[in-house]
Design a protein around this nucleic acid. Structure first.
Lengths: 110, 110
DNA sequence: TTGTATTGCGCAATGA
DNA sequence: TTCATTGCGCAATACA
């Protein structure tokens, strides 16, 4: 453990104890320095992390927006073609239903 | 500014200067306390920020994945219907081209 | 027990 | 002048 005040005992002036104490204090001061640098480092990285995440987020949001538009476009295109309404394979099928949710979209929280 | 060592001058014991000094030190200590609390607060918020962003990101990634699948599905569905190949309004139109990029998807960095 | 790492805290210099 | 911020050392204590 870091040095303990020699004064807490019966040592008064510069002797072995004192040197040990100083030596110990010095070591601890270095440790403190190291520790604090690490902390700053981490803090800095956290900020960087936030920036990166915000950027990624922007990109993803754009993608979602664009994909949604595209999908809408395709659905309309498909639905509006009268030929589809007559395709034998779509007999009795409710296209609205089909397009609603193909995969398992089970995530809507934002 | 925070008090200055009165010892730096010719004041030895408890007098006005001393009281002012103590009073000043005390004020500063409080200020330091406030400042450090704020700092911790900010740090904490930054961590929270990261968590939230990571969560949002997950959700967005899922959405992109799902939307992409859906879109693929629709494109195939559309392309595979022979009726479309005969729809008069699609005369001379390259569907592949049409589907490629409707909006302006100008973002691919991840 | 010993040594390093963290953390709260006060002092003083410096910023605003 | 006052309060806020920051580098730095001390000591307690958390970890190994």
């Amino acid at each position: 453990m870091p040095p303990v005040k020699r004064a807490a005992r019966g040592v008064s002036d510069a002797d072995d104890e004192d040197e040990d104490y100083r030596r110990g204090r010095e070591r601890n001061n270095e440790a403190v320095r190291r520790s604090r640098n690490k902390a700053k480092q981490r803090t800095q990285e956290t900020f960087t992390r936030v920036s990166k995440l915000k950027a990624e987020n922007q990109i993803l949001e754009d993608k979602v927006r664009i994909l949604t538009q595209e999908l809408e476009f395709h659905k309309k295109l498909f639905m509006e073609l009268p030929s589809n309404a007559q395709d034998p394979r779509l007999e009795g099928i409710d296209l609205e239903k089909v397009f609603e949710d193909i995969p398992d979209n089970k995530d809507e929280k934002t």
